[in-house]
Amino acid sequence: MPDNAVLLEIKNVSKEFPVKKKKLYAVSDVSFTLSRGETLGLVGESGCGKSTIAKMIAGSLPVTSGSITLDGVEYTHMKKKEFAKFRRSIQMVFQDPLSSFSPRMRIGTYLCEPRVNYDHVSKDEAMAEAEELLAKVGLPAEFLMRYPHELSGGQLQRVAIARAIAISPKILICDEATGALDVSIQNQIAKLLVELVEENNIGCLFIGHDLALVRSVTQRVAIMYLGRIVEFLDSETLQEEYMHPYTEALLDSIFDVHCDQDEDIKLLAGEAPSPLVVHNGCPFAQRCEYCTEQCRYQLPELSHVNGTHYVACFNPLKR
């Protein structure tokens, strides 16, 4: 019997894409677990592989190597037919609200879809449920008859979330789900997500690039760089306990509203190296101010610091 607390387990997952005659290393040897009622944040810059991980968990992208286990079932090599049924356990909410909707489908029909497809309930029954779902995410029933372009971005995102939870999934993946929204709306959606995760006791993977926002909705945060997780942190104490230089750079890049204008910005030199090249050493070595010889030739492993804190660095910041 699998451990009850662990819902999703990702073990040594890698993903390579063939690009012409080379290989693009999108995700390299990533492992983590997610428990019921827990929200894990995945933070990193564009191209670091966070969306690729989401797609692999959702099953819309095959893994190159490694295993993904949900509730004790390894599903990366499931047959297409079997997976079609299994898929309902993992639902996803995407970044751009408008493009997640077929422009010619009414909100009601959209909400009914999963129940009709998976559980073969009647259209009327599903419609009645859809109304309840709308209420759950704080939207009026009259939206059932509306078309996507008649709703605002925040409203659409609520509908997308409602649909995702309609079939009580075990895992909800939010891929930059608030990224396209205004800050006030962003907070509302974040709050709603936290409530739903708690209420339904599901696991949630919250992907984003805004460390401050991700921290506010999660219990743990994983920092990714160039296809690897470089640090796992506890959200609450993130700011005090971070040890990886890249996490420091991310924190330094946040412009606080109440910042001191005269203070110089700490800049991270250069840009992320190409994922087409194999790096022997630490992926962050080229941009790291604490880089040593060892960093260039040897890959630091994730090592346990304390509690849920792990860091992959030879010269972690001492505090």
């Binding site: 805004d210 921290r215 506010s216 909705v217 959200s235 700011q239 509203v257």
Partner: peptide, 14 residues
Amino acid sequence: LIDAVPKMGGNRFA
């Protein structure tokens, strides 16, 4: 508007 901006030291929903 200022309050809505997520802040590193700010309150968490979770």
